[in-house]
C-alpha cells in the first residue's frame, strides 16, 4: 500500500477498472417504455440538445404564453378602466383555443415529427426493436411523450390567463368562486386539443422519414384547409356545405371546446358545421382521433412480428 506523504496528504492511486460485467437489476419492458417516453419529452423540448433544437418548441410555447398574457393584460386594463362590466365581450378561456389553434397546430407540425422521423431516417428504430420493446410500445411511448408536452402547451397559457384575470380583478376571491368551473373546462378542452393535434401530427410523421416533409405537409394541411373549407362552405348551402365545413381541420377540436365551455367561440360561430349538432361534431372529433390513432399503431405494429 502507498504510504501517506510527510505533508499529511493521503496519496491517491488511480485504477483503470475498465469494462465490468453487469450483475445489477434488469427492469425489462417497463423500463424500456419509460426510457423511450422520457427521451421523447427531452426531444420535444430540446432538453440536452443544442440551441437550434430548443428554438422551435420554446418559440411556440413562448408565443402561446404571450397570447394568454396579452389577453390577461387586456382584461386587467378593461377592469381598471370600465369595471367588471367591461369584461363582457372580451376574449376569455372559451375563446382561447379558437384564437390560437393555428399556433398549436404549427407547434405540433414542427415538433412532433422530430420524435419519430429521425429514428427511422437514421435507423435507430432497429436498435429499439432488438431490445425488450415492441413497435407498439415504441409508438405509444412517443405518442404519450408528445401528448404530455402538448397538454402543457395547451394548459400553460390558459392558466397564465386565469392567474392574470384573478390578479387584475378587484375581488379575486369573488371572481374565482364565480369562475372556478373554468379550470375543469380548461383541462378537458386542452386535453381534447392536445390529443387531436398529437395524433394527427404523429400519423403524418409515421409516413415519412424526413421531419421537414411531415412539417410542411401538416402546416399546409391546417393552413390550407381553413380558408378553403370556410370559403367553399359559405358558397354551397345545405348539407354539402355543412359537411365541407366539417373538413376545416383547425375547427374540429374547437367545436369540442365550445361544447365543453357551453359557449360558441368567434372562430366556430359562423361555421355551417355547427348546424349538424353536437353529437355529430363529437363523433367527428373522435373519428379524427381514434382512426388516425389506430392507423398509427398498426403501422408500428408491423415493424415487429
Amino acid at each position: 500500500m502507498n504510504e501517506a506523504r510527510s505533508t499529511g496528504t493521503a496519496e491517491g492511486t488511480v485504477f483503470d477498472i475498465g469494462y465490468q460485467r453487469y450483475s445489477g437489476p434488469r427492469e425489462g419492458r417497463h423500463r424500456a417504455r419509460t426510457a423511450v417516453f422520457k427521451d421523447g419529452l427531452r426531444t420535444a423540448l430540446g432538453i440536452g440538445r443544442g440551441g437550434r433544437a430548443k428554438l422551435l418548441p420554446w418559440t411556440f410555447i413562448g408565443l402561446l404564453v404571450v397570447i394568454g398574457f396579452i389577453l390577461a393584460l387586456v382584461a386587467g386594463a378593461a377592469l381598471r378602466l370600465g369595471g367588471p362590466d367591461a369584461l363582457e365581450g372580451l376574449p376569455t378561456h372559451s375563446d382561447f383555443y379558437g384564437i390560437s389553434s393555428i399556433f398549436f397546430f404549427v407547434f405540433a407540425a414542427v415538433v412532433a415529427p422530430d420524435l419519430i422521423c429521425p429514428d427511422r431516417r437514421h435507423g435507430v428504430i432497429n436498435l429499439y426493436l432488438v431490445r425488450p420493446l415492441t413497435g407498439i410500445d415504441y409508438i405509444v411511448a412517443r405518442w404519450s411523450a408528445f401528448l404530455v408536452v402538448a397538454l402543457g402547451v395547451a394548459w400553460l397559457p390558459q392558466f397564465v390567463l386565469l392567474i392574470g384575470r384573478l390578479m387584475g380583478h378587484p375581488d379575486p376571491g369573488g371572481y374565482f368562486s364565480e369562475n372556478w368551473t373554468d379550470i375543469p373546462n380548461i383541462l378537458l378542452s386542452g386535453a381534447a386539443m392536445a390529443a387531436y393535434m398529437t395524433t394527427l401530427a404523429m400519423l403524418v410523421a409515421a409516413f415519412t422519414k424526413r421531419r421537414a416533409y411531415a412539417s410542411v405537409f401538416l402546416v399546409g394541411l391546417f393552413v390550407i384547409s381553413t380558408p378553403f373549407t370556410a370559403g367553399l362552405s359559405t358558397e354551397i348551402e345545405g348539407a354539402v356545405g355543412q359537411w365541407i365545413s366539417m373538413f376545416n381541420l383547425s375547427n374540429i377540436p374547437v367545436h369540442v371546446n365550445d361544447m365543453i365551455f357551453g359557449e360558441v367561440s368567434e372562430v366556430t360561430g359562423g361555421a355551417p358545421a355547427r348546424e349538424l349538432g353536437s353529437r355529430v361534431l363529437l363523433a367527428w372529433y373522435f373519428g379524427w382521433v381514434l382512426i388516425p390513432g389506430a392507423i398509427l399503431v398498426e403501422r408500428y405494429r408491423r415493424l415487429t412480428p
Binding site: 445489477g24 427492469e27 429499439y128 431490445r131 425488450p132
Partner: peptide
C-alpha cells in the same frame, strides 16, 4: 445530434437498466 454518452445511456435504459 446526441452525444455518444447520452445515446448509450438511453439505450442501456431501453434494455432495462436503471
Amino acid at each position: 445530434r446526441v452525444s455518444a454518452a447520452e445515446f448509450l445511456t438511453h439505450l442501456a435504459e431501453v434494455s432495462g437498466l436503471p
